[in-house]
Deep mutational scan, measured.
Amino acid sequence: EDYYQILGVPRNASQKEIKKAYYQLAKKYHPDTNKDDPKAKEKFSQLAEAYEVLSDEVKRKQYDA
């Protein structure tokens, strides 16, 4: 799945936009606030993985290549 789609940001998003999108979605899908939703944990880990790659310039360049 596309990391940009997961975070809901365009491919040319700035680091600030990526961070903002991640924090909004992380708050929304955090397992502690969605105890009754088994998919929230999965969504949250996808968000974390996408953010880890896109927030790191080197990893992001490799991902975009």
Score class of each variant (00 low, 15 high):
residue 50 A to P: 01
residue 43 K to C: 07
residue 36 D to A: 07
residue 41 K to G: 09
residue 6 I to M: 10
residue 54 L to G: 00
residue 53 V to D: 01
residue 17 E to H: 10
residue 15 Q to W: 05
residue 64 D to T: 03
residue 22 Y to D: 00
residue 58 V to M: 11
residue 23 Y to M: 15
residue 12 N to E: 12
residue 37 D to A: 03
residue 4 Y to N: 00
residue 2 D to C: 07
residue 56 D to N: 06
residue 21 A to G: 03
residue 11 R to I: 06
residue 31 P to W: 07
residue 16 K to G: 12
residue 31 P to M: 07
residue 37 D to T: 03
residue 13 A to N: 00
residue 3 Y to D: 00
residue 14 S to H: 09
residue 55 S to Y: 07
residue 23 Y to K: 14
residue 35 K to Y: 10
residue 15 Q to N: 15
residue 64 D to G: 03
residue 41 K to T: 14
residue 2 D to V: 03
residue 62 Q to Y: 08
residue 40 A to P: 04
residue 61 K to P: 04
residue 6 I to Y: 05
residue 61 K to C: 08
residue 10 P to T: 12
residue 49 E to W: 07
residue 7 L to Y: 00
residue 54 L to Q: 00
residue 40 A to Q: 07
residue 55 S to V: 06
residue 52 E to W: 05
residue 39 K to W: 14
residue 2 D to I: 04
residue 42 E to H: 08
residue 48 A to C: 10
residue 50 A to W: 01
residue 18 I to T: 01
residue 45 S to I: 15
residue 28 K to P: 05
residue 40 A to C: 08
residue 65 A to C: 09
residue 63 Y to M: 02
residue 50 A to Q: 00
residue 51 Y to F: 11
residue 6 I to F: 05
residue 40 A to E: 06
residue 55 S to I: 07
residue 65 A to W: 06
residue 55 S to Q: 07
residue 3 Y to C: 04
residue 17 E to D: 15
residue 40 A to H: 06
residue 29 Y to M: 09
residue 25 L to Y: 04
residue 24 Q to I: 14
residue 65 A to G: 09
residue 28 K to C: 08
residue 11 R to W: 06
residue 31 P to H: 09
residue 65 A to E: 15
residue 27 K to I: 15
residue 29 Y to V: 05
residue 62 Q to R: 06
residue 9 V to W: 00
residue 28 K to L: 13
residue 28 K to D: 08
residue 30 H to K: 07
residue 5 Q to P: 01
residue 64 D to Y: 02
residue 55 S to M: 06
residue 6 I to P: 00
residue 50 A to E: 00
residue 49 E to K: 15
residue 21 A to F: 03
residue 37 D to I: 04
residue 6 I to R: 11
residue 20 K to E: 13
residue 4 Y to W: 02
residue 12 N to M: 08
residue 1 E to K: 15
residue 44 F to V: 05
residue 53 V to S: 03
residue 62 Q to F: 08
residue 18 I to L: 08
residue 33 T to A: 15
residue 31 P to V: 07
residue 29 Y to N: 05
residue 10 P to V: 08
residue 26 A to C: 09
residue 12 N to V: 09
residue 65 A to L: 11
residue 16 K to P: 09
residue 10 P to I: 08
residue 27 K to D: 12
residue 52 E to F: 09
residue 62 Q to W: 09
residue 32 D to I: 11
residue 19 K to E: 15
residue 59 K to A: 13
residue 5 Q to M: 13
residue 24 Q to Y: 14
residue 34 N to P: 06
residue 12 N to D: 11
residue 47 L to W: 03
residue 19 K to T: 14
residue 31 P to T: 10
residue 31 P to I: 05
residue 54 L to H: 00
residue 2 D to F: 06
residue 24 Q to V: 09
residue 54 L to W: 01
residue 30 H to M: 08
residue 16 K to S: 15
residue 30 H to C: 07
residue 23 Y to V: 15
residue 58 V to I: 11
residue 22 Y to R: 01
residue 49 E to V: 13
residue 61 K to E: 13
residue 2 D to E: 06
residue 15 Q to K: 11
residue 6 I to W: 06
residue 64 D to N: 05
residue 55 S to C: 06
residue 29 Y to S: 04
residue 3 Y to N: 02
residue 41 K to M: 15
residue 60 R to S: 02
residue 41 K to N: 13
residue 22 Y to F: 12
residue 41 K to A: 15
residue 4 Y to L: 01
residue 15 Q to H: 09
residue 42 E to M: 08
residue 8 G to L: 04
residue 7 L to F: 03
residue 26 A to D: 03
residue 64 D to M: 03
residue 20 K to T: 13
residue 50 A to D: 00
residue 3 Y to A: 03
residue 44 F to Y: 14
residue 17 E to N: 07
residue 65 A to I: 15
residue 56 D to Q: 02
residue 9 V to P: 00
residue 14 S to M: 07
residue 57 E to R: 06
residue 28 K to M: 10
residue 27 K to H: 13
residue 14 S to N: 10
residue 59 K to W: 05
residue 14 S to F: 04
residue 63 Y to Q: 02
residue 2 D to N: 11
residue 19 K to A: 14
residue 36 D to W: 11
residue 7 L to A: 00
residue 57 E to V: 12
residue 61 K to D: 06
residue 19 K to G: 07
residue 43 K to G: 04
residue 64 D to H: 03
residue 12 N to F: 10
residue 38 P to G: 06
residue 35 K to P: 15
residue 45 S to R: 10
residue 28 K to R: 10
residue 60 R to E: 01
residue 52 E to T: 10
residue 46 Q to I: 09
residue 22 Y to W: 08
residue 28 K to A: 13
residue 52 E to Y: 07
residue 54 L to M: 03
residue 35 K to D: 11
residue 34 N to C: 08
residue 22 Y to P: 00
residue 41 K to E: 14
residue 4 Y to C: 01
residue 13 A to H: 01
residue 9 V to I: 09
residue 49 E to H: 11
residue 18 I to H: 00
residue 39 K to C: 10
residue 27 K to N: 13
residue 2 D to Y: 06
residue 15 Q to G: 07
residue 43 K to R: 09
residue 3 Y to V: 03
residue 26 A to F: 15
residue 53 V to C: 08
residue 60 R to Q: 02
residue 8 G to N: 09
residue 51 Y to H: 04
residue 49 E to P: 04
residue 15 Q to V: 13
residue 33 T to G: 09
residue 32 D to T: 10
residue 42 E to D: 10
residue 30 H to V: 05
residue 63 Y to I: 02
residue 29 Y to H: 07
residue 48 A to Q: 14
residue 1 E to A: 15
residue 57 E to N: 06
residue 48 A to H: 12
residue 24 Q to A: 14
residue 6 I to L: 12
residue 62 Q to E: 14
residue 11 R to T: 06
residue 55 S to H: 08
residue 56 D to E: 03
residue 20 K to G: 07
residue 64 D to R: 01
residue 15 Q to A: 13
residue 61 K to R: 10
residue 53 V to W: 06
residue 7 L to V: 03
residue 46 Q to S: 06
residue 6 I to Q: 05
residue 63 Y to R: 01
residue 61 K to G: 11
residue 3 Y to P: 04
residue 65 A to R: 05
residue 20 K to A: 15
residue 19 K to M: 14
residue 22 Y to I: 01
residue 41 K to R: 13
residue 40 A to S: 09
residue 46 Q to P: 03
residue 42 E to C: 08
residue 35 K to R: 13
residue 37 D to V: 03
residue 60 R to P: 01
residue 29 Y to I: 05
residue 11 R to S: 10
residue 50 A to H: 00
residue 58 V to K: 05
residue 32 D to H: 10
residue 13 A to S: 09
residue 54 L to N: 00
residue 50 A to L: 03
residue 43 K to N: 06
residue 39 K to M: 13
residue 60 R to F: 01
residue 27 K to P: 06
residue 35 K to T: 12
residue 19 K to S: 13
residue 35 K to V: 12
residue 64 D to P: 02
residue 41 K to L: 13
residue 55 S to W: 04
residue 24 Q to F: 13
residue 8 G to E: 10
residue 26 A to E: 07
residue 29 Y to R: 03
residue 23 Y to G: 12
residue 64 D to V: 02
residue 9 V to H: 00
residue 53 V to M: 05
residue 25 L to E: 10
residue 52 E to H: 07
residue 5 Q to R: 07
residue 19 K to L: 14
residue 44 F to H: 05
residue 37 D to F: 03
residue 38 P to S: 05
residue 47 L to V: 12
residue 5 Q to K: 15
residue 57 E to G: 06
residue 55 S to T: 06
residue 10 P to A: 13
residue 49 E to T: 13
residue 20 K to L: 14
residue 44 F to T: 04
residue 31 P to N: 13
residue 36 D to E: 12
residue 56 D to T: 02
residue 14 S to W: 03
residue 21 A to I: 05
residue 12 N to G: 07
residue 13 A to L: 01
residue 34 N to F: 14
residue 20 K to M: 15
residue 61 K to L: 10
residue 11 R to Y: 07
residue 42 E to I: 07
residue 15 Q to Y: 11
residue 64 D to W: 02
residue 5 Q to L: 11
residue 1 E to Q: 14
residue 28 K to I: 11
